[in-house]
Design a protein around this nucleic acid. Sequence first.
DNA 1: ACAAACCATAACCACACGGTTATGGTTTTG
DNA 2: CAAAACCATAACCGTGTGGTTATGGTTTGT
Lengths: 111, 111
Amino acid sequence: MVLPVKPASAHHVFRALSDPTRRAIFEELTRQGEQTVHALTSFAGVSQPAVSKHLTVLKRAKLVRHRRAGRETHYRAQPDALAPMVDWLRHYGVFWRDRFDKLEALLERME
Amino acid sequence: MVLPVKPASAHHVFRALSDPTRRAIFEELTRQGEQTVHALTSFAGVSQPAVSKHLTVLKRAKLVRHRRAGRETHYRAQPDALAPMVDWLRHYGVFWRDRFDKLEALLERME
DNA sequence: ACAAACCATAACCACACGGTTATGGTTTTG
DNA sequence: CAAAACCATAACCGTGTGGTTATGGTTTGT
């Protein structure tokens, strides 16, 4: 088995990423790594409870994991959880560009 | 220029695909090809106006195109419009699996 | 020990959203 | 030409959603 955890449903992932604030939080977590709720709050520009609720939705989609450390909770992104969305997209032959890019890069490295 | 039309915003695409009924309609259009609103209505299991509204949302995201033919309107999927979502996903190193698959296939064909 | 910091949950609110029925315009059919 | 089919839009409605403030529980700092 490759996946460490069973993925959430595709619906949860699509739903979680449909909101701009949640996408911003997820992007921030992947860029800057682990963050406390406090840090995410000052980043997101909404109240702390709003951030907590967004994190709950992202958690349900397994897009984030959390780690309690004393009074603060650290969240980090879990990009593997994007798999259901990627699998859904794979049906639409939408990655041919990626294939060309990879092949090109490979050939270049083979010289 | 490769793209025939300027893509809609990533937000519109994410938003449009967050609803299960709209995803089902989009999937149906890619599987079965062009469809009239009438056909899509009997497929979707909701009323005809509901389908029309869903198609409007998909249209805003440029995920479907329509063609008037007499009294009926034919809709067809436009998978190219998934590009903004794919581009967004590309930032998260989520296509490893695809890379491995491609490399594997290539090596196999090289023998 | 007490105050402050951090976070989650509850309670509430405005509004966006997905559904419905009603209506009307255009086009085909009888 | 009248009737029916097809579709889009309007009007409406219940509920979900994203935001807020209020509250309380832990944990840290003084």
